[in-house]
């Protein structure tokens, strides 16, 4: 029971951390609260549906391609022309992109939810240290864990990562040192696309369907997780997302059946308490070392 819960909690936490990291990276580098993040995720999930008759890894690969393509296209067509605009204008633009993509999906390929048959090997359950665990949970932990480690390596050990972190902290000062907006902004969108793509693969497998509005909840999770951890700290945002996922799993497992329907009420009450104590988020503004 404990082992099953741990794997489930770590898996959901890692997935939420991925979602949160995408939101926080965009906010840090561009000052953009990107509400179209959910539709980048939708693009990935739609690729999983489109390639549902191909081997699973083909669909997963195409999900990354679709998500990165939509992320880059939104940058080029919508956000690039508004690069120097007020953050409120950027936010409204992201709403517009979100609604436009959602509407296009609804009018064309996704007028209703489409089922994605679960990959047989993901539906299996195996025994791990005496516990009966679903392969999907293990894959979620593995995929999200590897992605988070890769992002940590990219951000901490590469020149691009250092430039992204600097730009996320103080874009103007970074530019004065020679960090090029035309490099870091598209790079941030590519990373966000990859994170959303991997998130969409996991979400599509967990939900077993894809619909035009499926990006809304992950986007909200990303925003809430980032606020919880601290919008100005990528590490804090990932921690916030992880905690949000882990606590969600905890509530799903241990809440009495008749209270399960109120899970989000408990979750967001806890969130409000945390934010009253630390309004800047868990790690933002804290004196922590990043690397």
């Amino acid at each position: 029971m404990i082992m099953e819960f741990l794997i489930s909690a770590v898996g959901l936490g890692a997935l939420y951390a991925l979602l949160t990291l995408g939101v926080a990276l965009m906010f840090g580098v561009l000052g953009l609260m990107n509400f179209a993040y959910g539709e980048i995720l939708l693009a990935g999930a739609f690729a999983m549906y489109l390639f549902r008759n191909e081997p699973w890894f083909v669909g997963a690969g195409m999900a990354l391609v679709f998500a990165v393509a939509v992320a880059l296209l939104s940058e080029r067509l919508a956000f690039h022309p508004l690069r120097d605009a007020d953050p409120v204008i950027l936010m409204i633009a992201s709403f517009a992109v979100s609604l436009a993509l959602q509407s296009i999906a609804r009018m064309t390929v996704l007028p209703r939810a489409r089922g994605i048959a679960p990959e047989p090997f993901l539906s299996r359950r195996i025994e791990v240290l005496g516990a009966d665990v679903s392969v999907l949970d293990l894959v979620t932990v593995g995929l999200c864990g590897v992605t988070l480690v890769a992002v940590a390596w990219l951000m901490g050990r590469t020149s691009l990562g250092i430039q992204l972190r600097a730009a996320a902290e103080d874009f103007r000062m970074a530019a004065l040192l020679g960090v090029r907006p035309n490099l870091v902004i598209p790079a941030a969108f590519v990373i966000v696309g990859v994170l959303a793509g991997i998130g969409s693969v996991v979400l599509a497998a967990r939900q077993g369907s894809v619909s035009a509005d499926m990006g809304l909840q992950p986007m909200l999770i990303g925003v809430v997780g980032a606020v919880l951890g601290g919008m100005s700290s990528l590490k804090g945002a990932a921690l916030g997302g992880f905690l949000l996922g882990a606590v969600t799993a905890l509530l799903e497992t241990f809440l009495p059946t008749d209270l399960i329907a109120f899970r989000d009420a408990f979750l967001f009450t806890a969130l409000i308490v945390v934010l009253v104590v630390r309004p800047q988020g868990l790690l933002s503004g804290a004196k922590v070392r990043v690397s």
Binding site: A166, D170, V290, S291
Partner: peptide, 10 residues
């Protein structure tokens, strides 16, 4: 203009 989230070396 120091980047607080980066190390001295970075």
């Amino acid at each position: 203009g120091i980047f607080a989230g980066l190390t001295v070396g970075e």
